[in-house]
């Protein structure tokens, strides 16, 4: 599936939690595998940034989950978009896809920090009967709004800096308490420090590196 390039119209821009929003836009015939990302920019402007796809493979439109970065060249512009505005889209790109894991079976373990939850939303949307456990790490309860599109008991919220969620602490601490079968496939998405630590914990559980996929958010 090759990358394509298109200028599309924004369909909606929905706030989800502090400084974050789901940007939805025309699909323009772009096909992708769940877990991949797009490169987005404002038409006529040169800077682009990469964002994991939030919507499912079968959805009629594309969505991404964006955190507005105060000094960001692109995210601040995306935050201002309203329905009808233009958007430049390149993609899809990336290898953070569950295809191999789905073929071989085995439990799926998803670990995300912050907006790193985005590709997992796409995976769950694409495969509604997926057997997974998702540990989602945020710093404050306000950020739990990022989970509002998830249903069911597969999600364990881990809040590191305040009480009020199912687990108070970092997701890597929660991970250490889990029993992870060695035939599991793990997918880690979010900040680098979490991924480093979780990678080592999982290797310690006997999960081979070819069953650990990572997607670092820079």
């Amino acid at each position: 599936m090759g990358a394509s390039s298109a200028e599309v119209r924004v369909l909606s821009n929905r706030p989800v939690g502090p400084g974050c929003f789901v940007l939805t836009f025309e699909r323009a015939g772009i096909s992708f595998r769940t877990g991949q990302y797009l490169s987005l920019g404002i038409p006529g402007q040169r800077e682009q940034r990469e964002y994991s796809i939030y919507s499912g493979e079968g959805d009629p439109q594309l969505s991404v989950l964006v955190r507005e970065v105060p000094e960001g060249l692109v995210s601040r512009r995306l935050a201002k978009l309203v329905p009808g505005d233009g958007l430049h889209v390149d993609g899809p790109f990336g290898y953070f896809t569950p295809d191999t894991a789905l073929k071989s079976g085995g439990p799926l373990l998803f670990l995300a920090t912050g907006t790193g939850i985005s590709p997992f939303h796409s995976m769950v949307q694409t495969h509604p009967h997926l057997n997974y456990t998702l540990l989602h790490g945020v710093r404050t309860c306000a950020e739990l709004a990022l989970e509002e599109d998830f249903l069911g008991e597969n999600l364990v919220a881990c809040v590191s800096r305040e009480d009020g969620a199912a687990y108070r602490g970092r997701i890597t601490d929660r991970l250490k308490d889990l029993t992870v079968p060695p035939e599991s496939h793990a997918f880690l998405c979010g900040n680098c420090d979490m991924i480093y630590e979780a990678f080592d914990v999982l290797r310690g559980f006997g999960i081979p590196s070819d069953r650990i996929s990572t997607e670092v958010y820079f």
Partner: peptide, 14 residues
């Protein structure tokens, strides 16, 4: 492996 992750090389040492 950690540096490869940070480099976004998408493969492990294994």
């Amino acid at each position: 492996d950690h540096v490869l992750i940070r480099m976004n090389r998408n493969h492990s040492m294994d």
